[in-house]
Computed example of a mutant assay.
Amino acid sequence: MDIRAYLRERKTLIDAFLESYFSAPVNPKTLHNSMLYSLHAGGKRIRPILCLAAYEACVKDSTAKIEDIIPYAAALEFIHTYSLIHDDLPAMDNDDLRRGKPTNHKVFGEGMAILAGDGLLTEAFYLLSNNTQYGYHLSHSAVLRVIREIAIAAGAHGMVGGQAQDLLSEDAEPDAETLSFIHTHKTAALITVSVRSGGILADCSDYELSGLTKYGENIGLAFQVIDDILDVEGETEVIGKPRGSDEKKKKMTYPKLYGIEKSKERAKELINAAINSLETFDEKAEPLRAIAMYMLERKS
């Protein structure tokens, strides 16, 4: 399949929803502008697209459309964007560039950047729970389960816990156990729950959900391993942030522990494991398989 065309098409759907969702301004206007600055800063929308692709792979109702779950997928982008805003702050990674543009706090100040992140995180759960407007045909129990799983994946037991360990591990001697904890929590947790959420909203079987979970865990970890590699080998103009920033901040990364070549081998192993986890799925899961392969090719 033409995975680039698929990603462009799905990204267009997500972007259109994001644009319409904030058509009514948040007050004060500066907060509104700060939230939208990062939300529309050129993200690839991988997490919501994975949610849509998992839904497509599992849904049995012939009348169902992926548009039906776009609000739930978009909520994942709210959470991801909030995490980037906060991650870039001087008290965290102190980054000046994100996706080739000045980071939020460089444009709006630290206080407003913190509040923009807070606003996006909270709005995500409003969006997920707003069944009076969205997802009227979906099972309320499925929606509630998705809300619970996203909360776990995004919070102290998932992404936030990984970010905390990432900070605590700066300038520490790298070890496999700590590195695995950071990557599986900071990055893979939200990617995994994106895939699981699509399956749950499609009322997938336990067996299907197990396959989706293994897929999400493997591509989530591969995504971060590849990020670590790009920080060493990528071009600043392409990756959207200074090359070598991880080394400068003395981050614990795969190349630092294993070297570049072994890190590349590990990324390939994880991608193959992700694809193998979908062996019982039919052609409707082809986008998921293609996204996994695409990750190995990405340059940003």
Results as ranks from 00 to 15, higher is better:
E279S: 15
I275L: 06
G216M: 08
G240L: 13
D68G: 07
K262S: 05
A267Y: 11
G244C: 05
T236A: 06
P48M: 01
A274G: 09
D95Q: 07
G117A: 13
E77G: 04
D68Q: 14
V232T: 08
K186N: 01
G155H: 08
D118G: 05
L144N: 09
L179S: 02
C58L: 12
I49T: 09
K11E: 14
P25H: 14
R98S: 02
S245Q: 10
Y37H: 01
A54I: 04
E177N: 00
N104E: 00
V238R: 13
Q163R: 05
C58K: 10
Y37S: 00
K44L: 08
Y136L: 14
S83Q: 03
E233H: 04
E170T: 13
V195C: 12
E269W: 06
A151S: 12
I219Y: 02
A188L: 05
L13A: 15
H32A: 12
L138R: 09
R47Y: 03
L115T: 10
M295Q: 08
E297W: 06
K251C: 04
I191H: 13
I219A: 03
V146E: 13
A202D: 12
M112A: 10
E173V: 02
I219C: 13
G199H: 10
E177D: 02
D68S: 13
A154L: 04
I239V: 08
H185G: 00
T192K: 10
R298F: 12
E67G: 13
D282N: 13
L31Y: 07
R47N: 07
E235L: 14
